[in-house]
Design a protein around this nucleic acid. Structure first.
Lengths: 156, 156
DNA sequence: CGGTATCCTAGTAGATACTG
DNA sequence: CAGTATCTACTAGGATACCG
């Protein structure tokens, strides 16, 4: 029969939607960039260790020092995924001990520029957001007036 | 004594770094924007249900229909966090049944513009990334030459 | 030095059911 | 219609130990 429950209809819709989400370039980019260390690696390679210089290649251990507290696993994983997407290039020199450097590609550099735009927005508006957030929290804490939805019941 | 293990030093560094990360506006923004439904809500409110119109207010259930497959919980949660940050505004009209509409604020609109920049980048470069990715995977699959690190052992 | 392999935890997304 | 409450599942992130 053609009758479906709401849950079934949602499940079907979700199945279709997954294809859309998977195909949607901006969602993919967000998934790539939203990793905890991705933007930090990008910044380090794009603006030097001091975050306000020129792009330059860096070694694995140097990145590990700049991104304080990163575990070897996450650093490896992040670098590998960025390399996979052609955003950074990896160069191994057969010295002893082996020397490996990472560097932004042109593609990675262009992404870094775009991310800087986002960074600029957040720097410009961070206090606005903070103010809204504080106001919102204060309103909910001190004046819990019902806003149409259910409100947590006060002590009887 | 002042001697610390590598793990202890990393832990300390991480503790300091957390403050930096928490304070870093761009990281905060990314955390805010990288939620699965955040950008979709932003797009829906910023470009209409067809994703290529003008910004206009939408109702809860309308958003639920446009963002196919979203559960009421996630929709609520996403809308609430966006409202908290002052990116959208919520308006409840005391009709029966109650009518609630959501709308981008100026702040939310400006963020939407910025996110569109990111979207543009991903649309421009998505095939480059895909090509790199394919090449990388092919190289690893067909020519597993050791690149300095350990390679997964073949069957003995 | 530059990683990989293994195990573990904690936060986030989703299903389901219920309320004003 | 517009949510809230509760439970479960998944996976990103991290600690640890070890190899080339």
């Amino acid at each position: 029969m053609a009758t479906r429950t709401a849950a079934q209809r949602r499940a079907e819709a979700r199945a279709e939607y997954n294809a859309f989400l998977a195909a949607c370039p901006s969602q993919q980019l967000l998934a790539r960039v939203s990793g905890k260390w991705v933007t930090l690696v990008l910044s380090a390679l794009g603006s030097g260790p001091d975050c306000d210089g020129d792009p330059r290649p860096m070694r694995y251990s140097e990145l590990g020092r700049v991104l304080a507290g990163v575990s070897p696993k996450m650093l490896s994983q992040t670098l590998r995924s960025l390399e996979r997407d052609g955003l950074i290039s990896r160069t191994a020199t057969a010295t002893v001990p082996v020397t490996v450097t990472y560097e932004l590609t042109d593609l990675g550099l262009s992404l870094h520029q775009t991310v800087r735009q986002l960074k600029r927005w957040s720097e410009t508006h961070q206090d606005e957001v903070a103010a809204h957030r504080a106001a919102f929290d204060a309103a909910r804490g001190e004046d819990p007036v019902p806003r149409g939805g259910a409100q947590p019941e006060a002590v009887p």
